[in-house]
């Protein structure tokens, strides 16, 4: 019996435990993918993505490249289904990098997806430019309304409208603070938590601002019906507390959502009401931002 036999046996035990730990972690990641699949089927997309993100991190840590690449590819598909092409592209590219480095069989499939998406992006940029050059340049919003909505809905530049809405929502007093929550991991969960907080405190203004931001996020995901619901809730709150600026911004949001849903008359009515309030507020910054939005909607 050697003096170091005891250490030899400790070493073996540690190895055994590490192997076990490794297996548990792999099983944990596999389970997360299973949960994500169920959540996705249940339309809980954000939660599903959250689980997929966590599983990717575990696979990466364990050096399970094939699984990591396959989940990144899957996440690309999820975002593609939500029409978030840029994010989808980001995941496909990450996946492609791993496939190239590790010579994984899905490389060709992923490469094709990247190519297709890049083509789509180039086309939409072109359409965006055309829309922008044909939009109205006059300062009077009445003239813009008189021009009428675009007849061809497929030519609507969602990205452009989204950025105009960002400009408007950033004028909200609360945005400087609440907008920063979007930088957190899982921003929606944080914003939802903040809404609960604002309700428990009775901070109506804070709640209205947060709901508006939720609507903006939903609209960016092209969940237009959902976003309309949020915007309406925010509008109701801002009206309740007599916040004109909040009301004007909410009306712009509601109007835009109606427009995107094809309910142009309803949308027009909200946009007009909003412009009336903005005119009354004498807020140049807001007027400019609102005009820019109208120009992207009407032409």
């Amino acid at each position: 019996m050697g003096i170091f036999d005891r250490y030899q046996s400790t070493d073996d035990t540690i190895k055994k435990y590490l192997k076990q730990l490794w297996e548990y972690q792999e099983a944990e990641a596999d389970l997360m993918v299973e949960i994500a699949t169920l959540l996705y089927e249940d339309d809980a997309i954000d939660d599903a993505v959250g689980f997929l993100e966590r599983s990717v991190r575990i696979y990466e840590e364990l050096g399970l490249y094939e699984q990591e690449a396959s989940i990144l590819d899957l996440m690309g598909d999820v975002y593609l289904n939500m029409d978030e092409n840029n994010t989808a592209l980001k995941y496909y590219r990450k996946c492609h990098q791993i496939c190239t480095a590790k010579d994984l069989p899905i490389i060709e499939d992923v490469f094709n997806k990247i190519q297709e998406l890049e083509e789509v992006e180039q086309t939409s940029t072109k359409i965006g430019t055309e829309t922008s050059t044909s939009s109205v340049d006059e300062d009077s919003y009445s003239e813009i309304f008189d021009e009428g909505f675009s007849d061809e809905m497929e030519k609507v530049d969602y990205e452009n409208i989204g950025s105009k809405l960002d400009d408007i929502i950033s004028l909200l007093d609360e945005y400087a603070i609440y907008g920063s929550y979007q930088k957190f991991d899982n921003p929606l969960a944080h914003i939802k938590e903040a809404i609960e907080m604002s309700r428990s405190i009775g901070d109506d203004k804070g709640e209205a601002g947060l709901i508006l931001i939720m609507g903006d996020i939903s609209l960016k995901k092209e969940e237009t019906e959902k976003s309309l619901d949020y915007f309406q809730q925010a509008l109701k709150k801002f009206r309740k507390i007599g916040d004109d600026k909040g009301e004007a911004i909410s009306r712009l949001m509601v109007g835009t959502a109606y427009f995107l849903l094809g309910e142009t008359e309803e949308g027009s009515s909200y946009l007009r009401e909003s412009m009336e309030i903005i005119k009354f507020l004498h807020d140049d910054k807001m007027e400019k931002a609102a005009m820019a939005l109208l120009k992207s909607i009407y032409r």
Binding site: I177, E193, A194, M197, D203, G206, E207
Partner: peptide, 10 residues
Amino acid sequence: DPTDLMVKVG
């Protein structure tokens, strides 16, 4: 902004 303060407390 008590809501933000509560979020940061969280």
